[in-house]
Amino acid sequence: MVLTVPVRMGGDRGGHSRRTVLGAVLAVVGAVPLAGCDSLRQAPRERPAPDPLNPFYLDTLALARRYDATITAVPGLAERLGPLRDAHHAHAQALVREMGPGLNQPSATPSETAPADQTAALAALLAAEKEASAAARETCLTAPSYRAALLGSIAAARASHVEALS
């Protein structure tokens, strides 16, 4: 609600009061995503198989499973790592939806391992997140426009995980 709707105050009498100005700015900005989404939905999508996002999807799945393995190995980290793990699984699901029929679902999924020591486990995840965030950024930079927002959000989420693990 905050910063998203114009604030109406009894003392305002129209014109460029402080409140209407910010309200207008953010109201305009808030209207943008709807228009953007519509244009994206209508954009023609040509998806030659195999979809180039497949390797990125496999890396995302591996990262999610690495968290699963870590939480299994160090249950005390479950509360702290749970939201980060869930985010990676959500990214993987979003990538599945994005690729649609272009997805090559792996027939066998390699299991991930994790250190049993808490400090070592966190350090390993931190290093993995740094690498993964940079990879998502690079993928975003070269992606077609209709995938840029999703990949940008994934890069941003991974970078925020680095912050949360640091």
Partner: peptide, 30 residues
């Protein structure tokens, strides 16, 4: 744009951590 999005997400996480908001991250920033 992507660097700006990344930086906003990191700063939001810093602020949530300082404010004691859990979880300090969101799955899809922005």
């Amino acid at each position: 744009a992507v660097d700006a999005l990344v930086d906003c997400a990191v700063r939001a996480t810093k602020a949530r951590t300082l404010a004691g908001v859990k979880p300090a991250t969101v799955p899809f920033p922005g």
